[in-house]
Design a protein around this nucleic acid. Structure first.
Lengths: 343, 343
DNA sequence: TTGAAAGCGCTAACAC
DNA sequence: GTGTTAGCGCTTTCAA
């Protein structure tokens, strides 16, 4: 069992280094020696051992994927889909993905083990991630691609969502349906995507010369889950300024808002139309189903891997921003033409 | 940068082997030398390099996950969920998962690269997998755990679904609703789970002294997707023997059957009640939503990893069969009490 | 074009 | 207890 390069060399009647040259096609080997070696490899069913090779080449053949732990769970299909996208793509480049999550709550952001052990050739970081880790990756001189996250400082490659475009589509859709008083709920403004979605809403409203004020925007939630959507929606509903439509910064918050509205006996979409963002499962399992902005999550993961591999191979340089397009998907939560209530 | 064990040894004023002993807590090191070493490690921020360690210990710190490629796609959330379950669990055991898929279509089932390169310490195999690969894993002497698959020959550990129990629950549910003429559709009888589900149906019907014959069972489809469900349902609908309920071997086929029934202007569940199996997304996005048997997919993956790690550490031996429980989830596709049509 | 030999960073005998 | 040393299986100078 367990053949080594020595066995091959012996069988082929050549030196170990010659076998290595053949395996790594470094050329400079005569056709006939090459044939002898190839034959021996074939007969022995030999395959070089990854770790032995890695020890000298400093290449592990792995890519690291770092995610904050609250983003990798059943409740959070968004980043999970991105991760699966990286898995798909990685295999066609002969890389394996090592996944790790980092605990956000504990102040001490432990450096992922695969970084400490020098077990990856490049890193993908998805969502909000502590600076400390980004800096560590940098200090290791590892290629890095951010996904759905960006930093103003530093020259990072990133795969980003067209957040402004998406929110604009959603808002415009509502406007086209006849809505004039539209509110927005969001949260976690430390995340660039969230900030952009909020700004995108403002912008679209202004472009349409529609009113937007403090009472129609609620973005101060620390998180962006259903509970926060519920709270934010309730806050807006309690305010004097009435609205007929609500734009959610993501599906989770939109679904929370859905519940808040139902609790107030408001019909959706008749009394209030609602849109989400992301198009995760919850958008389609919600009742009514949620009109939302579809994000190509798997594709984002694939894109990140492709770019990362290019950086590793010197075919691309860090600093590229890739913005993926999004698409509005109309479902029940807005399907109804709004009655013009001139209150 | 990049400290080695030598640097630590030098700084602590001891031999490299002593540092190694400390790192691997092999004991036999005096408290004070240990302190010196620990201090040096701390100061240099040293971490042993995975591949160097792996080269000598023959341990990679990785677990391999093998899946047939048609089982790893967006259309197939079942095994994908199992995979995510392994990812969750692996991290708490300090292992990384290397995922690979094998092409079923090509006759030549290439041996996964991580096996050839000796890059995993154990293997998880999900779904139908070529014997050749199982044999190869065996020849490598690698611990192996099968998930949703089993082989009569050989002593394999496996995480299995309570298929008979699940189908029995679904069938009994229909019987309790008043159904007497119940049909079954399945496919890919080469897969043990499919075979068991079919047998489970037969068994439950017989226990209830209800008729079951060739015209009420259609299991000869080669695959188990919606298209096959559609075809199978149409076949049964065309037969003389009428039925008021249909048990699907999985959600995908049940959804195909749903479509077939709608095409024939049959109302669900009024004219025909339908059940699925697996509880994947399609069950809840279908219209009407699908009554189905919930399978703890993530838990199955986690269980597999836990057991595999135990085998690796000598705390468990291969050959254990673990059967996970399932649970019926009632939804719209059966929610209606059937009218007793005494045709 | 090929071979001999020196490591890559670590563990594990085996001395002392 | 601690140090010396020989590898693990490969790549990569450097000679020949």
């Amino acid at each position: 069992m367990n053949k080594t390069i020595r066995d091959v060399a012996q069988r082929a009647g050549v030196a170990v280094s010659t076998v290595s040259l053949v395996i790594n096609r470094k050329g400079r080997v005569s056709k006939e020696t090459e044939q002898k070696v190839l034959k021996a490899i074939e007969e022995l069913n030999y395959h070089p051992q990854r770790v032995a090779r890695g020890l000298v080449t400093k290449r592990s053949g792995n890519l690291g994927f770092i995610l904050s732990s609250d983003h990798f769970s059943q409740a959070e299909p968004f980043y999970t889909k991105i991760f699966l996208g990286t898995e798909f793509e990685a295999r066609s480049h002969d890389y394996y993905i090592l996944l790790t999550t980092i605990e956000k709550q504990t102040g001490s952001f432990a450096i992922p083990r695969f970084l400490l052990e020098r077990n990856v050739d490049g890193v993908i970081l998805a969502g909000t991630v502590p600076r400390k880790i980004i800096e560590y990756v940098g200090s290791r001189n590892l290629p890095l691609v951010l996904v759905d996250y960006s930093l103003s400082r530093g020259n990072f490659s990133a795969v980003l969502i067209d957040n402004v475009g998406g929110i604009s589509q959603a808002t415009q859709h509502l406007i086209d349906l006849g809505h004039r008083r539209i509110a927005f709920i969001g949260g976690d403004m430390s995340h660039p995507s969230m900030k952009e979605r909020c700004q995108g809403f403002r912008q679209t409203m202004e472009e349409n010369r529609l009113p937007v004020n403090a009472q129609s925007i609620c973005c101060d939630q620390p998180l962006t889950g259903p509970a926060e959507g519920f709270a934010a929606a309730n806050r807006l509903l309690a305010a004097k300024t009435k609205f007929t439509a609500l734009v959610g910064a993501n599906d989770a918050m939109a679904v929370g808002a859905l519940r808040a509205c139902r609790d107030q006996k408001l019909r959706i979409p008749e009394d209030i139309a609602i849109t989400g963002f992301d198009d995760v499962e919850t958008a389609i399992t919600a009742r009514p189903t949620l009109t939302t902005v579809q994000v190509p999550k798997e594709e984002m993961g694939a894109l990140a891997v492709r770019h990362l591999v290019n950086i590793i191979n010197g075919k691309a340089t860090m600093g590229t921003k890739m913005i993926v397009p999004v698409k509005l998907v109309c479902r029940e939560s807005t399907s109804c033409r709004v009655r013009e209530t001139s209150e």
